[in-house]
Design a protein around this nucleic acid. Structure first.
Length: 258
DNA sequence: ATGGCATTTAAAAAATGA
């Protein structure tokens, strides 16, 4: 089974790119982030027409997450949103069962500028995710928590790491919270497959960043111990970042033995 | 240190992203 994550940066603005990528790569499951659309603006018809079911959690203008699965897969929503803050109205977490795998799609807050209230929200959100992770990691069933983490885990994950010092994606507290999550027993699937390679999933729109390969790795797959032994392959569809009217993220994928 | 670009909302310019 191939599972992908893709921060589309506006699902309606990127619909041609999204459909082209789905047709070209045909992932079995695709988790999307940054829909930037309300629920009734989600392009479900176009997605159904190319053979995918979908569930989504939208929001006006910002955020928004969705889980797509090919027709023939069993897709059932398990929940939306993280516990721990009843006042949180941002659509950033969606959980579904796809066949026997629990698929948890997230769009972790950016947190800039740091320090500040947005950074506080990011760190609080990470604490809520860590609470959730405690339960998920120990399940007997296979679990993947994937999406745009907005975390650059190590110096290996950034072109010129010194440029990211002081950024919320690379702040000591951000990396520390992410490490605490990993230490629950999660496997960073892409880093497991490529322990020493420079791999990027995001290139900003400025300064010709994609052509210079001046990127960062912030889209991650975390596998629980039940699922981790089934990992067989993975990578980044970086060529999609070179398409017209494309997102600043590229799709990332893994393959699971089922 | 700053700004470069792209999107949404909504009707010009602000907010957001990373």
């Amino acid at each position: 089974m191939k599972i992908a994550t893709y921060n589309v940066n506006g699902i309606n603005a990127r619909l041609p790119v999204l459909l082209r990528w789905l047709a070209e790569q045909a992932p079995d499951v695709a988790c999307l982030q940054e829909l930037k659309a309300m629920d009734d603006k989600f392009p479900v018809l176009a997605i159904n027409q190319i053979g995918y079911k979908a569930i989504w959690h939208g929001q006006k203008a910002w955020n928004g997450v969705a889980i797509l699965a090919k027709e023939g897969f069993d897709l059932e929503e398990v929940g939306r949103g993280l516990d721990g803050d009843p006042d949180d109205a941002q659509s950033r977490y969606l959980e579904a069962r796809v066949n026997d795998i629990l698929v948890c799609c997230l769009y972790l807050p950016n947190g800039n500028p740091a320090p500040g209230p947005k950074f506080d929200y990011k760190l609080a959100w990470m604490e809520r995710l860590i609470e959730k992770g405690k339960q998920l990691v120990k399940l007997d069933k296979p679990v993947v928590v994937l999406g745009d983490y907005n975390v650059i885990p190590t110096n290996l994950d950034a072109y010129k790491p010194e440029r990211w010092v002081g950024d919320a994606l690379f702040f000591p507290e951000t990396k520390e919270a992410y490490m605490r999550l990993l230490d629950q027993g999660w496997t960073d699937a892409i880093r497991k497959l490529y322990p020493d390679e420079t791999i990027f999933t995001f290139w900003d729109y400025f300064r010709n960043a994609y052509a210079r390969n001046a990127g960062i790795r912030i889209d991650h797959f975390l596998l629980n111990p039940t699922l981790a032994p089934s990992l067989v392959a993975g990578g980044v569809h970086s060529h999609v970042r070179g398409w017209e009217k494309t997102s600043d993220h590229a799709p990332v994928w893994i393959e699971i033995r089922t």
